[in-house]
């Protein structure tokens, strides 16, 4: 099941294809290795191409082929374990290097991590079939505020922005008081 923007997403059009497996029609994701090795074949077919990045194995390769990765229609980050937080930095780095397509978090993850993933820049999270989507959606909203600026917007309100806004409002209010001559 796929969760997008804090809701259950309608059906998923992507198929994960292994190395050496024939490419079916339609949208597919392939491993980073295959994505880089078969770029022409992949581009020549109908359907879009996404790439799967495993933070455990692909870090160096992904970093040295940032331009190629940027052309993928989908980047799927496969978390090897929920305690392995490398994926968060991979997502963040992808956004920073200018990747604008969909980023999907997949693999071993906890409901509590949903909000963090989105904050780092992921659009969608794939959860296992047996999992309770409601728990995920609830946990994503458990904390309504965030201190970190410069990360992707989510429905959590950014504290620093709120404070800056309040500061500006105070300044404006003071400016108006000063500018309005008192009637005597």
């Amino acid at each position: 099941m796929l969760l997008r923007d804090g809701a259950i997403a309608p059906g998923d059009s992507w198929r994960a294809v292994d190395d050496g497996e024939d490419l079916p029609a339609g949208n597919v994701t392939v491993t980073l290795r295959r994505f880089l090795a078969e770029r022409e074949q992949l581009a020549a077919r109908d359907g879009e191409v996404g790439v799967r990045i495993n933070p455990g194995e692909d870090l160096a390769l992904a970093a040295s082929h940032a331009d190629a990765v940027n052309t993928a229609a989908l980047v799927s980050i496969i978390f090897p374990a929920f305690t392995d937080g490398r994926g968060f930095s991979v997502i963040r780095s992808l956004r920073r290097q200018g990747y604008r397509g969909e980023i999907r978090a997949d693999g071993s993850l906890l409901p509590d991590q949903f909000a963090f993933l989105r904050h780092c820049g992921a659009d969608t999270v794939a959860i296992a079939d047996g999992e309770d989507a409601q728990t995920w959606l609830r946990e994503a909203r458990a904390l309504s505020l965030a201190y970190q600026a410069g990360y992707a917007p989510t429905d959590a309100r950014n504290i620093l922005e709120a404070r800056a806004q309040a500061n500006r409002a105070t300044l404006r209010a003071t400016a108006i008081t000063v500018a309005t001559p008192e009637k005597t």
């Binding site: 929920f82 305690t83 392995d84 937080g85 968060f88 930095s89 963040r92 991590q113 909000a115 963090f116 993933l117 904050h119 780092c120 904390l143 965030a146 201190y147 970190q148 990360y151």
Partner: peptide, 8 residues
């Protein structure tokens, strides 16, 4: 506090 990138 609850840094989205550095909590794991």
């Amino acid at each position: 506090t609850f840094h989205p990138e550095f909590t794991f």
